[in-house]
Structure formats: structure tokens, C-alpha cells
Design a protein around this nucleic acid. Structure first.
Length: 376
RNA sequence: GCCGCCUUAGCUCAGUUGGUUCGAUCACUGGUUUGUGGAACCAGGGGUCCCCCGUUCAAGCCGGGGAGGCGGUA
């Protein structure tokens, strides 16, 4: 019998938590950052390179994979892990986010959402039941409920109705998912920035019972202060003994602030997308490799970073290959950003384990407070 | 030598019947990116319209002369 996915909390420092999610495909050390591999690839990265950065788990995407190459084709080819050559855990988004981001191509109802494909205009339907089916076909280890993620700002009536429908969809997702040892189903809390709506959402999810709980509907336009204000209460409304996953976050300081407030898992496109577009995250802040000041700079991006971009190449070279639009640019810069994000996670896990998160956080902010990246 | 075409931003080129401040691509200088519709997007700087003379209320545009380039031809 396949063992069930479990979460062992090792230590709590303030509100920050560290532990391990055990799955048949390997352990996920928390707090965990999940690189995003939307279309069965973390763009510009080989899977073994993603693993080398320290990532224990990837995020894959129901909406994109159902359109191309289709979930059925991936299932026939042995599932997403086999297909993309990644044997560690995969969490799949349910398509809920695309309910928001593709808003001009969709029609919504209580039953579900009808989309027009952004690829060829063909019509497709996503419902809680279909989303569960697709994520099962993909072989996802951690399946997300199908929800609606409203863009902020949104008025209270809209947030309430949306949250209540997402909770009905959560029950339908739970029912459709069934009992699948070795695979987990996470519920998604909604309710915008409203404490009482978040509480009602959490209550509904706890009644259904999930293997983990996500804080959804944040990082969608509200800004960091509003997000942190919400994270001051939202994670506390969720069960202590299950993983808490903040969806779609974020920048390095967003991630640190979220962990501080009791979040265990996060994902974000930022390190990979920014890597492709020349924005580099770094212990001293952010730098844009396309800026002219790097053209003659023989130094590495960060002499303390272990990634190939930092150990083997100069800023001048990275500047050159970015401007020349050479493919190695996206590869090296993505690798660096993912390495930096994973280094942050590793630092936080170590600090929480030794009850020194506050000191670690002070160092993190002190490094960034040095402002300009130069001179090292 | 003669004939034709061309000369407008750093490059390659648009520019209507003569009528506000001559535009675009790339390049350049910056910025943005949060459960990827994204190797994307946004903004900015940059002009002796080859030169001179003329016509006109008004010339990148029309006329004359000159310079430079490309092609053809003897």
C-alpha cells in the first residue's frame, strides 16, 4: 500500500515553521519554494539543474497542459514526471488562476468555466471535476482545488460571492478527488483582504478536510503592505498541523515576510521570468544585467553564490549575452535567480531550526539595505 | 564624359496636394514583471531633412546650381 503524504513540523520560531512533507517521490523541506514549470518545463532550465539549485518540488499547470499537449497524451506517455524527466514531487495548479488571468477569454458559471484557448481559440471547459481528472492524468503529487481567484481590488459583495462559490467548488473537488494514497489534495482559502471572509473560508475548508491549505487570492495587485496585513491573520486561521501554501508569491522580501507569518510553501514565476528578462535577484537587492554599467565589469554577479553564472562568468559576459539575445543568457540568469531563491529558503530553514529566524531576517534586510549593488 | 536614381535620427528607411512639433524598426538610456496568455511589455533621449540660391504667406516636399553615393552607358 502506498504511503500517505504526511507533514512533520520540526520547529516553530515565532510564527515561522520548518518541517518536512514526506511523499513517495521524496521529501519536501519546508519552508519550500517551488519553481514554476508551466508547460512541463522550467523555462531555460534542465530538470537536473533545477534539482541542483535545491528545489524539492516543482509547480505544473493544468490549464496549459490540458491545451497542449493535453492531459490524456501525457498520461499515455507515462505521466508528467516521466514526460518531463522530473522524478521529485510536482504540485499542479488547478487552472483557477487562469480564471482570472484569462478573464477576457472565459465564461463563468456555478458549474465551472468555459475558456477559449489562447493558442488556437478552441473552447474548453474546466470544472472542479474536470480539473481533478486532469491533475490525476498528469500524475500530480499535490493536487490543488479548482477555485476562483478574483483580482484585487474587488468589492466585498463580489469577494463574498466568489469565496462562497470557491468553497462549493472545494467540496466538489474533494468529492471528485476521492481517496488516493500517495497523492495530496490542498484546499484554497479565499476572501481577499477581509479577515471575517478569510475566517469563513478557512472554516469551510477545515470542515471538508484537506491534506494542506493554501492561501489564495493574494499577490494579485494589492501591494505588499496589504498582503502582509492579511497574512498577519490568514495562516493562523488554518490548521497548525498541515502545510500552508501561499500561492504565487513572490519577491524575496515577500517570501521572507510570508515565512515569518507562518507560511510553509510558495511558488512564483518571478525568478524564472525575470531571469529571462535580465532582472537579477541578489542578496544586496535587484540588478538589471542589461544596464550599461555592467559592460566592462569583470566581477561575478555575487562571489558568494554557487551557481554557474556566478562561478564561471563575469557581469560583463552576462551583460553581453543578454544584449546579444543569446540563449545562454536566459539559462544562466534563470539558474542564478532560482539558486538565490533556494539559498534564501535554505537559510530560513536553518535559522528556524535553531530559533534564530529573527537574526537571520535582520541580516537579510541589512544586506538589501546596502542599496546599490556596487561595489561588492 | 553622358544618362538615371539616391542623400531625412547612430543604422535601415517612411513622409500624402507645399500647411501645426518630420515618423517607424533596430540600436541607445532607463523602468516594469508575484498560483507564466510573457525570451514579454512600457517609457525616454536623440534631427543643420547634404549645401547654397530662388519661388511662396508658408518648402523635407517645387525650381536652379553645387557636393557626395549607387547603377547604366561610351
Amino acid at each position: 500500500m502506498t504511503k500517505r503524504i504526511s507533514f512533520d513540523l520540526h520547529n516553530i520560531d515565532g510564527k515561522a515553521r520548518t518541517g518536512v512533507i514526506s511523499t513517495p517521490r521524496g521529501d519536501i523541506r519546508t519552508p519550500a519554494f517551488m519553481p514554476v514549470g508551466t508547460a512541463a518545463t522550467v523555462k531555460a532550465m534542465m530538470p537536473e539543474s533545477v534539482a541542483a539549485t535545491g528545489a524539492d518540488i516543482l509547480l505544473g499547470n493544468t490549464y496549459h497542459l490540458m491545451l497542449r499537449p493535453t492531459a490524456e497524451r501525457i498520461a499515455n506517455l507515462g505521466g508528467l514526471h516521466e514526460f518531463m524527466n522530473w522524478d521529485k514531487p510536482i504540485l499542479t495548479d488547478s487552472g483557477g488562476f487562469q480564471v482570472m488571468s484569462l478573464s477576457d477569454l472565459r465564461k463563468m458559471s456555478e458549474h465551472g468555466v468555459t475558456f477559449k484557448s489562447h493558442i488556437d481559440g478552441s473552447s474548453h471547459e474546466l470544472t472542479p471535476e474536470r480539473s481533478m481528472e486532469i491533475q490525476k492524468l498528469l500524475g500530480s503529487d499535490i493536487v490543488m482545488c479548482f477555485d476562483e481567484c478574483p483580482a484585487l481590488p474587488a468589492d466585498r459583495t463580489r469577494l463574498t460571492e466568489s469565496m462562497e462559490m470557491s468553497m462549493r467548488w472545494a467540496q466538489r473537488s474533494r468529492d471528485a478527488f476521492g481517496d488516493r494514497p500517495g497523492h495530496a489534495l490542498f484546499g484554497i482559502q479565499q476572501g481577499g483582504l477581509e479577515e471575517d471572509l478569510r475566517a469563513r473560508s478557512a472554516e469551510a475548508l477545515r470542515a471538508i478536510e484537506f491534506d494542506g491549505y493554501a492561501v489564495g487570492g493574494l499577490a494579485v495587485g494589492e501591494g505588499q503592505e496589504a498582503m502582509f496585513n492579511t497574512l498577519d491573520f490568514a495562516p493562523d486561521q488554518l490548521p497548525v498541523d498541515k502545510p500552508r501554501y501561499l500561492m504565487g508569491v513572490g519577491k524575496p522580501d515577500d517570501i521572507v515576510g510570508a515565512v515569518k507569518r507562518g507560511i510553509d510553501m510558495m511558488d512564483c514565476v518571478l525568478p524564472s521570468r525575470s531571469g529571462r528578462t535580465g532582472q537579477i535577484f541578489h542578496r544586496r537587492g535587484v540588478l538589471n544585467i542589461k544596464n550599461a554599467r555592467h559592460a566592462d565589469d569583470p566581477r561575478p554577479l555575487d562571489e558568494n553564490c554557487s551557481c554557474p553564472a556566478c562561478t564561471n562568468y563575469s557581469r560583463a559576459y552576462l551583460h553581453h549575452v543578454f544584449r546579444a539575445q543569446e540563449m545562454i543568457s536566459g539559462m544562466l540568469l534563470t539558474w542564478h535567480n532560482l539558486q538565490y531563491f533556494q539559498d534564501i529558503m535554505d537559510g530560513m530553514r536553518g535559522a528556524i531550526a535553531t530559533n534564530s529566524f529573527a537574526a537571520w531576517e535582520a541580516d537579510f534586510h541589512a544586506g538589501r539595505a546596502q542599496g546599490d549593488i556596487e561595489p561588492l
